[in-house]
């Protein structure tokens, strides 16, 4: 554990909590892609199956359980409790275009051809593209509320900090997880455009972030 990894995990947690509280307090999930949230719940589910097979640390177990609970609670708010506010018209990204290639790739490129390992690989690849329905939705509607932008900022920070973590681990312990690093770089690239918009519009501008 190093400072980059710990801050990355904390930013990830903050992002998830920001989104959950935003929906809970406003009693509305307007502007939020339910599809992205389902994909994230699927990411956590397929990645954390090792909760049942191996124990790493109390920190590891607690964080996994918290991420899972929050992910499913958010999905529950969007599709059940506040489903009237869910904008399915704008959330029109075709997730099969992500799921099929990601599933195929996880069978082809993995560390071991075992069910758990393939599902872990699937979760890594899927996480790298899971935010696309949300970014697509913002592009389509042309704006995002600032709180949604804060959510995306913390998700992006989490990614960037994980990259720093991997650089640090490579230098200090020679650790290099090729699948996670390559997918992580791809995932972080998706946030670059958003980072630019965030700093030029949300911080300087009014409450909302508009896209050109």
């Amino acid at each position: 554990m190093n400072i980059f990894r710990l801050s990355g995990d904390v930013c990830h947690l903050i992002a998830i909590i920001i989104l959950f509280l935003k929906i809970w307090r406003s009693k509305s999930c307007a502007g939020i892609s339910g599809k992205s949230q389902v994909l994230f719940a699927l990411v956590f589910t397929t990645r954390y199956l090792d909760l049942f097979t191996s124990y790493i640390s109390a920190y590891n177990t607690v964080m996994k359980v918290v991420y899972l609970l929050l992910a499913y609670s958010t999905v529950g708010l969007i599709f059940f409790r506040f489903r009237n506010s869910y904008d399915s018209e704008s959330d029109s990204f075709r997730v099969e275009f992500l799921l099929v290639p990601v599933a195929g790739l996880s069978f082809l490129e993995n560390y071991a051809f075992t069910p758990l390992e393939i599902l872990w690989t699937f979760s890594i690849y899927l996480e790298s593209v899971a935010i696309l329905p949300q970014l697509f939705m913002i592009t389509k509607t042309g704006e995002a509320e600032s709180i949604t932008a804060h959510y995306l900022l913390f998700l992006g920070l989490y990614r960037a900090l994980y990259l720093a973590n991997w650089l640090w681990r490579f230098h200090t312990e020679g650790f290099y997880d090729q699948i996670a690093v390559v997918s992580g770089v791809v995932q972080t690239i998706f946030y670059c455009d958003f980072f630019y918009l965030y700093f030029t519009r949300v911080l300087r501008g009014s409450g909302k972030m508009s896209l050109p």
Partner: peptide, 10 residues
């Protein structure tokens, strides 16, 4: 299966 890395990261 030996090349599989331990999954300590989240």
């Amino acid at each position: 299966e030996d090349d599989a890395l331990p999954k300590d990261e989240l």
